[in-house]
Nucleic acid binder design. Structure first.
Length: 161
DNA sequence: CGCGTTTGACCGGCGC
DNA sequence: GCGCCGGTCAAACGCG
């Protein structure tokens, strides 16, 4: 077929690229924000982010989360992760997976949750917890497109720190 | 054989 | 106190 004008596939450069949809939302110890609830709440009432407060997270390291759109669940952030759990969550068709950084002495964790409710099909919520105490393995060039998207979104919209 | 995933058990917090 | 729900453990398994 040489007249392929509208193949059903999405856009080029895509299959394992992630388009960043939201700026990273930071969660610190003081205002007790839960990024995983961001994904859940946008699942529940299909609305904007609903901030869930007054849960105890004393001693929890800081977290941040953002959404991307991709066919793949895992976005390559340059670190190596080992999966240590997967759970079905309420009001979601897709399970949530739990990853830990493979470096010993580094206990950074992340959650990956795909949301399928509402029209937001193919949106993945990635939540990071903690700060790496070792350098990234991959070259920075491979991460630059992703970082540029995040930086753009951070500066062009108002975020809460 | 080393390393990562899978998967059910387990556990602790929270609400009723 | 009990049951639901989310997070973690760990043994078995898979794969290079």
């Amino acid at each position: 077929m040489e007249g392929q004008e509208t193949p059903a596939r999405t856009d080029p450069q895509h299959s394992h690229s992630h388009d960043v949809l939201t700026p990273p939302i930071f969660f610190d110890l003081h205002n007790s924000l839960f990024p995983s609830d961001v994904g859940l709440s946008s699942l529940n009432d299909d609305e904007d982010y609903m901030i869930i407060k007054n849960k105890r997270n004393i001693g929890k390291p800081c977290r941040f989360a953002f959404q991307t759109r991709s066919e793949e669940d895992i976005l390559d952030d340059g670190y190596r992760w080992r999966k240590y759990g997967q759970k079905a969550v309420k009001n979601s068709n897709f399970p949530r997976s739990y990853y830990r950084c493979t470096h010993h002495t580094c206990n950074v964790k992340k959650q990956i949750q795909r949301l399928s409710k509402s029209k937001e099909n193919g949106v993945v919520v990635t939540t990071y917890e903690g700060i790496h105490n070792h350098p990234c393995e991959k070259l920075m060039e491979t991460l630059t497109p992703l970082l540029k998207q995040i930086q753009f979104l951070t500066t062009s919209t108002h975020t809460l720190f």
